[in-house]
């Protein structure tokens, strides 16, 4: 429905301060469907805060953030929630799955919460899990860390988001699983028609992205080197 030219995420002239600390000033970022970007930065540099702003959970002091062409600035709480539910998927650092539910239910839950009433949901979920290589299991408790994170990825995808966010998605994984999950994640924009923004402090993960930025001096600088 959206014109191919419309970016999944567009941030312009973003300024955000916490107290008298200027976290972002003049930050720009544009991400089209099918593209991936990684944002690197040391702990405390504002990576999670940037995600909060994109999710509309914090309001910028200046500048605009638009998701799939919708400027968040004018939206009320309900409209914001609708944009989030319909256009944004998110993978959390620790997965945050419900241990006693199976992978299918964990994934379907996100669709149910977003008010999805498609009768084909169970098939869609099964297909998604199969494609992501998640084995059958009555409970995600019994899955490995990497498999659990795949479930979390499937859950982020189930609502067909235009923009996929991931906050330290591999932070809790060992090296092998990290590589597997990272490969999976960065293959998604092409497969799933979405844009991917990964926030991480892991260069090896960030290296898989189409574009890599580092938070520095209140803005984003292309490349992996922070300049002080």
């Amino acid at each position: 429905m959206s014109a191919p030219s419309r970016p999944a995420l567009a941030i312009a002239a973003l300024r955000y301060t916490i107290g008298d600390r200027v976290l972002f000033d003049g930050l720009e970022l544009e991400l089209a469907v099918g593209e991936s970007a990684a944002i690197l930065g040391p702990s405390g540099s504002g990576k999670s805060t940037l995600l909060s702003l994109i999710l509309g959970m914090a309001r910028p002091d200046e500048g605009t953030i638009a998701i799939d062409g919708t400027d968040l600035a004018g939206l009320g709480t309900a409209a914001l929630a609708k944009v989030r539910a319909g256009s944004v998927g998110m993978v959390f650092q620790f997965g945050e799955l419900l241990p006693e539910l199976g992978p299918e239910d964990n994934v379907a839950l996100a669709a149910m919460l977003a008010g999805d009433d498609d009768p084909g949901l169970p098939d869609r979920v099964a297909e998604l899990l199969r494609r992501l290589g998640v084995p059958q299991s009555p409970r995600v408790e019994t899955l490995s860390g990497g498999e659990r994170q795949r479930v979390a990825v499937a859950r982020a995808l189930v609502n067909g988001p235009r923009l996929l966010l991931a906050d330290e998605p591999t932070g809790a994984l060992d090296e092998t699983n990290r590589d597997n999950v990272a490969d999976l994640l960065f293959a998604l924009p092409a497969e799933q028609d979405c844009a991917l923004l990964v926030v991480t402090h892991d260069r090896a993960v960030a290296a898989r992205a189409d574009r890599v930025y580092t938070i520095t001096g209140g803005g984003l600088r292309a490349g992996t080197e922070a300049q002080r």
């Binding site: 999710l55 959970m57 929630a81 609708k82 989030r84 539910a85 944004v88 998927g89 998110m90 959390f92 945050e96 799955l97 419900l98 241990p99 839950l109 996100a110 149910m112 919460l113 977003a114 008010g115 859950r155 609502n159």
Partner: peptide, 15 residues
């Protein structure tokens, strides 16, 4: 508690 982030992103606090 594990549900809080998901609910925050997808909505549906009434759950």
């Amino acid at each position: 508690r594990a549900l809080a982030p998901l609910v925050a992103v997808t909505g549906g606090v009434a759950v």
